[in-house]
Design a protein around this nucleic acid. Sequence first.
DNA 1: TTGTATGCGTTATCAA
DNA 2: TTGATAACGCATACAA
Lengths: 347, 347
Amino acid sequence: MADLLSVAKLAGVSRATASRTFATPERVSPATRRKVEDAATQLAFRPNKVARQLRARATKMIGVMVPSLNNPVFAEQLHAMEVAAREAGYSLIVTTSGYDPSREQAIVEEMLSQRVDGLALTVAVARDSAVLTTLQRETTPCLLVYNPPHPGGLPAIGVDNRAAMAEATRHLIALGHRHIGMVAGPLLQSDRARLRYAGYRQAMREHGLAPQPLIEMPRHTQAELACLAPALAGPNRLTAVLCTNDLLAISLIGELQRATFSVPDDLSVMGFDGIDLGRRLYPSLCSMEQPRIEIGRAAIASLLAMIQGQSPPLPFLPHALREGESVGAPPTSRQAPTLRSPQRNTP
Amino acid sequence: MADLLSVAKLAGVSRATASRTFATPERVSPATRRKVEDAATQLAFRPNKVARQLRARATKMIGVMVPSLNNPVFAEQLHAMEVAAREAGYSLIVTTSGYDPSREQAIVEEMLSQRVDGLALTVAVARDSAVLTTLQRETTPCLLVYNPPHPGGLPAIGVDNRAAMAEATRHLIALGHRHIGMVAGPLLQSDRARLRYAGYRQAMREHGLAPQPLIEMPRHTQAELACLAPALAGPNRLTAVLCTNDLLAISLIGELQRATFSVPDDLSVMGFDGIDLGRRLYPSLCSMEQPRIEIGRAAIASLLAMIQGQSPPLPFLPHALREGESVGAPPTSRQAPTLRSPQRNTP
DNA sequence: TTGTATGCGTTATCAA
DNA sequence: TTGATAACGCATACAA
């Protein structure tokens, strides 16, 4: 690919003049500007960003790391980030960590080596992540996305997970539910999930209700009815469950319906995240919505500010309760409906 | 951040030796190697990829452009691409085009300027995309993903959309359906959607059935029941519909159910793409699955081969019919069920 | 307004 | 085995 020097030669000017034609056109006489531009198009010249980055000691690139792109929460947030970054003239290097701390470490290392101007990371657990120590002796601005902030830790942007889940729980309580459970992926792998469970317990206790032990599913985004079945029987059976994320809630609803359970008549199911798809389903998914678009946008804006040397304020972004048909009043009869073993249509 | 020269100084060697310590350790004596390594850790040295990229005239970066990340088809494929690329030591620059041809053009231009080693693009319409002309006079390897191949055009990877939709149609016909419609987003914006419509018509005619005019929805991934309602009334009302993508199918099912329609008893609904979520729902979504993971992986592998100067074969990847509860035999009675206006739970 | 010269951090070539 | 040096392509300080 043609370089600046060949353009300059063809135009009959020096490299410096050719460079200025693109960087600061107003400092070049119209006549020579034309000559250079002509030469450039003739040679299909395309400035080499790598050289520019080396020279400028800045890449106009932001490194993004998310746990997965198979969860729409991250995909939708990333989409918003990409649009915002592009508007500001920045590109995104995108990586996935699979919630694996050692991969998190390697990825950050690599992005620093690439000299990204900033990092937007979503890690499994912010407090004891290995990347923290790496980053705290670096000058590259770094922002945690979705992770909760910690005193003395990295700046973080997202909702107040604890308060949000507490609010979700209160919503169910206000509808009359007393036996409310919480369903999560394995091990409360992420710090957000832990905070959400804490918020749930807090709201339960506030109302003199007994927080239930966590109902753990073997997978993060896929419900196993068998894990929930015990809690749906007996006199104290649950009338509502909160899920740590929407995909889990949606798949749980599917499993319940397949077992001839009715949602919300037999069991109310509430999600967390507020992914778009939830509104399209029937019953539509009641969920505590995280403003994913806003989070993505604000993350980029804040990161750009940090790159400029500022310390932007990073308040919690507002969560919002989204009503949905998957949640209703508790059933009046205390008799448990029959839970059949799921029947699948796929042979 | 420390550079090679400071490491060399601290270790008491030349820049060249320091460089070799990392590039070709076997060509450095163990003693000096140790010294350099110690100096490197002491200074927290991290090689500057930008400089390396400039020098090597190769970036080990691949530029990826997708229409959107809000559709799981692209997000899931991107996830697979990221994993595959990382394994091969490549990074991904990710951009979204929003199906906008002018943005497509600008994005490709920018990535070429960044000197990515290869491009993986999903464009709206491959044949008359402006990027084609740009790219065909470039040497940077480029691969179209999901777009159909064209003679003399860019290499492309994906399924045979026409054959796949024909097969989907035949599936419905085999179940006894005779009045089958097709639902799509606005304007058949993408070349894939057009091919799918062609496949549908072909299969219909093969069986002596009349292809129906396309039912266009105002949005790509969100169904409006009003657009479909006319086709659900009268003696020749549809008993099954094919949707150009899964999100459209899912939202259509939701709308139908909300209007007290039963799927599949009153209307069978089939999707296209086979996103993971479809299997979790009840009724589970019957869909023609594109092997998104495999497409992502193969795209990277093929692109790497192209970067090596090879011309890998690019056959269609196999699509697969995924059975699901959203499709069944046509209703026996020809009387149309009542279609109520949708009732939402959200005030 | 234009040109000259230098450096960004690395690696490869060539000598020693 | 090691060192000196040039070059990757660009942008800027300085001089003209």
